[in-house]
């Protein structure tokens, strides 16, 4: 028998939750960024699973666009982290509170 789509969806849900917990609890800005990449990848897995399940290539096309957006986001986000580190000498997000009121 074929592997059912539910198992792919469960794996995707698990990876998404690990990413959410990482974003909410970690203090290192770079690791927070990696958790965001984890969440993007779990969404990609869902899209590829449904694309394969429906026999429709458009889902995989959107995964391609998600990858392009993720590359852009990583470049800009890491540049922001470098700029922050240059000004504050830390990337601990507990100490980066200049936007807090």
């Amino acid at each position: 028998m074929h592997i059912q789509i539910e198992y792919y969806l469960i794996l995707s849900a698990f990876m998404f939750i690990v990413g959410v917990v990482g974003v909410l609890t970690r203090r290192n800005a770079i690791v927070v960024f990696m958790s965001i990449e984890l969440m993007l990848n779990s969404a990609n897995l869902t899209m590829v699973a449904f694309s394969s399940y429906l026999g429709n290539a458009v889902g995989q096309l959107f995964v391609f666009f998600v990858m392009a957006v993720a590359a852009a986001e990583a470049a800009v986000g890491l540049a922001i982290i470098i700029a922050l580190f240059r000004n504050k000498l830390t990337i601990n997000i507990d100490e980066l509170n200049i936007l807090k009121w």
Binding site: A68, A71, A72, E73, A75, V76, L78, A79, I82, A83
Partner: peptide, 12 residues
């Protein structure tokens, strides 16, 4: 991607 490249250059 072009805009992101320029933005990253300006920021960093």
């Amino acid at each position: 991607l072009l805009a992101a490249t320029i933005g990253a250059l300006v920021l960093a």
